[in-house]
């Protein structure tokens, strides 16, 4: 795999939000406005790059048994660092992101890349992967926020848009608008790629990094494992 494709795959082919469908919570929550979307994207990208690099460096040192707790400690530390920096130098952004800033720690994209990529690849590749995935996440958030803010509030990053400013459809910036815009964007991606992209048909554990904890291939197997437990 050449360096360029490692970098660019996160932007389109393996877009974390629209194709891999990871990090849904912050995507829906912080795409209400362009400013908060950019802030969230930048904060997540910073954590993603740092944690990818750190985990790639440590991959030989970390014993397999405790790798998930180790990843969580590393990720949580970088999230806290970003939190402190944002609070100190961009307090307005801290207010806008609120609880979603510390919650970057449970963003599946970050743990997912640590488990799926950084723990298996070189430091340079992991850094590039982090940058690519971060840009993919940020651009998608930006796209969603543009749609939601333009139609919902008639502005773009606070700048009024002619015509739309007089007819805001405020449901776009509210929760239902988030779900609907997200659903529409995924449908468009499916249409454009006509199934070529590694599409996730349903929302199961296949690409969910938490699968590493539960050790089950798919949430659809829950019934099965339940029977096993009951039989014990």
């Amino acid at each position: 795999m050449n360096k360029l494709s490692v970098l660019t795959k996160g932007i389109i082919k393996e877009n974390p939000v629209l194709v891999l469908v990871l990090g849904t919570c912050p995507t829906l929550a912080t795409s209400t406005g362009v400013t908060s979307a950019l802030g969230m994207g930048a904060a997540t990208t910073a954590v993603l790059i740092c944690s990818n690099i750190a985990i790639s460096i440590l991959k030989k040192v970390i014993p397999d048994k405790v790798r998930i707790p180790c990843y969580i400690v590393v990720i949580a530390s970088f999230v806290t660092l970003v939190q402190m920096i944002v609070k100190a130098y961009a307090p307005a952004l801290n207010t806008a992101l609120g609880i979603y800033l510390p919650l970057i720690v449970v963003n599946c994209i970050i743990l997912g890349r640590a488990e799926m990529f950084a723990s298996k690849n070189s430091v340079v590749d992991s850094a590039l992967d982090g940058i690519g995935m971060g840009i993919g996440f940020t651009l998608t958030l930006l796209l969603m926020a543009t749609i939601r803010e333009a139609f919902g509030a008639g502005t773009w990053a606070g700048i009024p848009i002619p015509v739309l400013i007089d007819h805001p459809i405020s449901i776009f910036t509210m929760a239902p608008g988030g779900f609907a815009v997200y659903g529409l964007l995924i449908a468009i991606v499916i249409k454009l790629t006509s199934g070529k992209a590694p599409r996730r048909k349903s929302f199961d554990c296949e690409a969910c990094p938490s699968a590493a904890f539960c050790g089950r291939g798919s949430c659809d197997d829950l019934d099965l494992s339940k029977k096993e437990v009951a039989a014990e």
């Binding site: 929760a175 239902p176 779900f179 997200y182 659903g183 995924i186 499916i190 929302f203």
Partner: peptide, 23 residues
Amino acid sequence: PPESFKGLPITLISAGIVSISFF
């Protein structure tokens, strides 16, 4: 639903409608 909407997209849009009910 239309082919492109099958699976996740239609599920998300339904979730949006359910969330309206909470208003």
